[in-house]
Design a protein around this nucleic acid. Structure first.
Lengths: 191, 191
DNA sequence: GTCTATACGAGGATAGAC
DNA sequence: GTCTATCCTCGTATAGAC
């Protein structure tokens, strides 16, 4: 059970990392935003590495919950994929990348513990996407020549890449959704 | 006509940015690798921003040349796309992302001049990809429901995303090529 | 838990000698 | 063009009082 301040620190830090990246954000930034001294942050998270590691762990849980919520909200595979894609799309409004998307760019400067967390994050999402894609194909309204595992990897890559590309665009959200629509359209087959 | 030292600085800096990102690399890193003092680097590139801007400008020219070389090497659109994808794949061996892929993650901390360069880079590549995809479809061996412009954006997003995902994988190159094969396979149609 | 104070190094950048 | 010397700021982190 984390304390309230610790959660607040994580909230602010998450936004900073998602916008600026691992190397570009600092304890001073967090300090400014929540009105607490730098030293106090070190009390909750002694080192930057540990803070970011906690960030990714929390993010993994969050995504697990969101995948569950999607399954409860609709049982239609295509709708489930669309909603999952929207998780990536909403961040664009605040110039945020997926936390793990950003940290993968910073991969070379991260300690191994965080790298393992990132790998786990992607593996979890790929497994889920493969499951949903499989359901979709079995329903007969979608078709693919390649195994669902590869298709899931391709979808995840498309989401990550579209999010990045959208960042360097004036109409980022339109750009993102256009790419996603294109991807899903390729899988659809006439019933 | 740039001097020899300036080129050398750019070479080393490019590797550093592609591996570590904009915020994580320093003049000291360059200094270490080419045996020149930090101050001497400032003679060639007074500010970090200018160095990176020169980096992207050179990279744009490089890609323009490589697209031309691809067109000269083969006239088969599918082969051209494969070769273009390989430009992204080779970097993985040295833990390098596409320079502009990495800098797009750092977008929020970059000055506007560099942001414009990045936009231009992506626009150029998309235009070219749309041209090649169009040729492929017109040849009758590929098919797509969506406009080639959107398909080009999707392909570029897939390349960028696959490169990132591969980074967080133990078998990065296999992972990358699997995703690309999957993408191209979806477009192929029996003649 | 949060504060002040501080240590220590790294990073970007400039001045001026050679 | 490259060097030494130096400046100043920022970033991470710790010690110890409250």
């Amino acid at each position: 059970m984390k304390g309230k301040t610790a959660e607040q620190i994580l909230d602010v830090a998450q936004d900073l990392v998602r916008r600026l990246g691992y190397s570009a954000f600092s304890y001073a930034d967090i300090s400014d935003q929540i009105g607490i001294r730098k030293a106090s942050i070190h009390y909750h998270f002694p080192a930057k590495d540990e803070l970011v590691k906690a960030l990714v762990q929390r993010y993994r849980v969050l995504f697990q919950q969101q995948r569950q919520q999607i399954e409860q909200a609709t049982s239609d595979p295509e709708q489930q994929l669309l909603r999952f894609a929207q998780l990536y799309q909403v961040g664009l409004q605040n110039n945020q990348l997926c936390l793990c998307n950003m940290l993968t760019a910073d991969f070379a400067v991260l300690p191994d513990a965080i790298r393992q967390e990132l790998k786990a994050f992607f593996a979890e999402n790929e497994t889920w996407l493969a499951k949903v894609l499989s359901k979709w194909i079995l329903s007969g309204t979608a078709y693919s020549q390649v195994p669902v595992e590869v298709l899931a990897a391709q979808l995840l890559a498309t989401l990550q890449g579209a999010q990045l590309l959208a960042r360097a665009s004036d109409a980022s959200e339109e750009r993102f959704s256009q790419i996603m629509t294109s991807f899903l359209g390729q899988l659809k087959r006439e019933p």
